[in-house]
Design a protein around this nucleic acid. Sequence first.
DNA 1: TATTGTGAAGGAATTCACAGCC
DNA 2: GGCTGTGAATTCCTTCACAATA
Lengths: 227, 227
Amino acid sequence: MTDTTNLVSIVKKFTSKIMSKKIPETTIIRLSVYYRALRQMSEQGVESTSSERLAEVVGYTAAQIRKDLAYFGQFGVPGRGYYVADLKLNISRILGINREWEVVLIGAGRLGEALIAYKGFERQHFRIVGVFDNNPDKFGKVRAGLTIRDIEELPKVVAEQKVEIGILTVPADQAQLVVNRMAEAGLKAILSFVPAPLEVPEGVILRRVDLAMELEALSYYLTLKTR
Amino acid sequence: MTDTTNLVSIVKKFTSKIMSKKIPETTIIRLSVYYRALRQMSEQGVESTSSERLAEVVGYTAAQIRKDLAYFGQFGVPGRGYYVADLKLNISRILGINREWEVVLIGAGRLGEALIAYKGFERQHFRIVGVFDNNPDKFGKVRAGLTIRDIEELPKVVAEQKVEIGILTVPADQAQLVVNRMAEAGLKAILSFVPAPLEVPEGVILRRVDLAMELEALSYYLTLKTR
DNA sequence: TATTGTGAAGGAATTCACAGCC
DNA sequence: GGCTGTGAATTCCTTCACAATA
């Protein structure tokens, strides 16, 4: 389905699509969902599918799926649907997970340690290559094969290993300071588990996972029902 | 600012507002953010603020903030702004966090244990009152003051303690089964950390926190920049 | 025939801008 | 004078519906 005889024009088309239109963030999240569903199909030996069938699995509408994909190109065959392997590969390219990403983790507290040990780290697209803390008592300790190091060494490791992504699991009161250091060290993207708003310099991407906010949303909907 | 001399009409207005309009989910998430900012202001001794100043702190527009609040009532004073304590209280009522919620956690693996120990559990609005697993080797072990119990006991605990919220941290392959048991046990809301799509029966709310998806979003934006 | 890809329509959320109130 | 609350305008996102096509 991917016409390898004319790769240049496809890449051009692909790139220009991405460049021109503005793509909703929700589309990116859904692509992750499609990717998982496709991987599962692939493992079950399913070779092809349709937007309709995929929609059943993931819980969005078929039109939504086709629209999401249309932002990036044409990956299906009218009248036939999509080849699972092909679409999966294309989505992995769009998401940039057709490679391995090295990741550092800053903050070797409980949550940090849990994440280090968390094998479900999505099948090796992301690999933790360094763990840092500012507590000297922890330096040298080993967790899941990784030695906890002084955060002073962060810039060196980031530069040497060309790391771009950092996971932040420090206490809220130190978080902004650490974010600044992460940015200075050259990290380009931060996934924060800190329950506080943080500012990042231009050019650095920040995403937050906030437990409390998620629970509060549940609390809201539960309260709403009984109001 | 809350006119306690005429509480009934205020409550009526409040309720009817919520009932009539459809409120964006993003508004609820932002309310959580406002709440944190207001709590911080409150701790710093700030007594009043404006949508403009709040906007600077949280990173949304002032109009957005006013619109979000308008879904639920009138909490400010034209020309003066908002009283911090008052607005904070109102938002906590909207979110349903002007009380304590008992929570159970199912899946005493690494992530589960990290969450149990996670003190940042947002200042006691949510308290874990039970930990469950299906591995007999773990039964009776104590984590952060909580004894790990047989998941068979879940219905009993949920009923006795009137628990409505459950946190799910089991492996993906068992997750759907466990979700079903949670729903049967009477839980009304589930916060899942499982990296897989899950189905819940009517009337049960499910929210997902998916590490891999968050990292994939970062990967996408990083890839985009260099494409 | 079956299903994609996509303009056009419809619906939601955000931003604007200002009347009204403190 | 300053700031809220809110209709109107705008922008963004989703769904519809169908021409194009393997």
